[in-house]
Amino acid sequence: MTDLIDILISASFWAAVIRIASPLILATMGELICERAGILNLGIEGIMVVGAFTGWLAVYQGMPLWGGVAVAMAAGMLFGLLHATLTIPFGLSQHVVGLGVTLLATSTSSFAYRLALPEVTSPPKIVPFQPLDVPVFSDIPFLGEVLFTQTAFTWFAFTVAVLVSLVLFRTPLGLAIRAAGENPSAVEAQGLSVTGLRMGAVIVGSGLMAMGGAFLTLSAFSSFFFEMVNGRGWICVALVVFGAWMPGKAALGAILFAAFDALQIRLQQTPLGADLPYQVFLMAPYVLSILALILMSRRAEVPAALMTAYNKGER
């Protein structure tokens, strides 16, 4: 028990929570935009892998870190375009296409990694984003260490969450995107293109997912591993449901989730960790995600046209 309290009052724990939440927030915002427009994007897991790989490779080849982020975003948008084309104008099953995109994106990354680095045995490292010491603020006890020693990429992730919320709920564009996911015929009646809105949402959303993946290689770790995304994409799909399709709540969900993740890592070092097999701790994130889905099942208001293809002129 004292171990638990020691962990919860340590600044390094809360700093880790913010760090772990960052990639989840980016990818969750990406999925949220897609689903608000009516498209379930199960390509998320693979698109995160692509982002992690391409961002890392670009920096490894000599690009600046933000250049790597841009490359990751572009690569993610490309796979987003593929997903969007097949599910929106062609109206193909969003489940099947999403899983297909995940498989294609993951295997393309592995294939390209092997081609680019045929000889290496241990994954090469890059110099990742460094903690940004905000003068004066970082000297504040506790809060300074938690908030003002994060990397610029983390600040970026949290800014994206605020922007997504503003655009979706405070602009005409956001209203149109949400309407495309609730009542596409009404959008068409306004003279707007459902196809255009949905495609844009999926492409931009996929770019955010890929940046979430790039966070793993460019800020959290410094190399690329095949298994590094490890279900985070699926967890983000669960976080969107947990957040009831609201950016703020979904971001809070990501932070809560990150807190449990940071906690399980630290609990492994305590006497409790010696008593329980380590796999129990590693299971926690997945079990929590399922519990979150159960908890929110009755309350969430699903976008009415989620997973419904829209074919102009069809009644």
Binding site: L42, H95, N230, G231, W234, I235, V237, A238, V241, P277, Q279, V280, L282, M283, Y286, V287, S289, I290, L293, I294, S297, R298
Partner: peptide, 27 residues
Amino acid sequence: LLKTRLGVDEVVTTLLLNFIMLLFVSY
């Protein structure tokens, strides 16, 4: 049962169970 009783989407729950089961096998 989560799907039929509570309306929980089975795509995500079955996907997440894959990871849980692999860790269980590892244990």
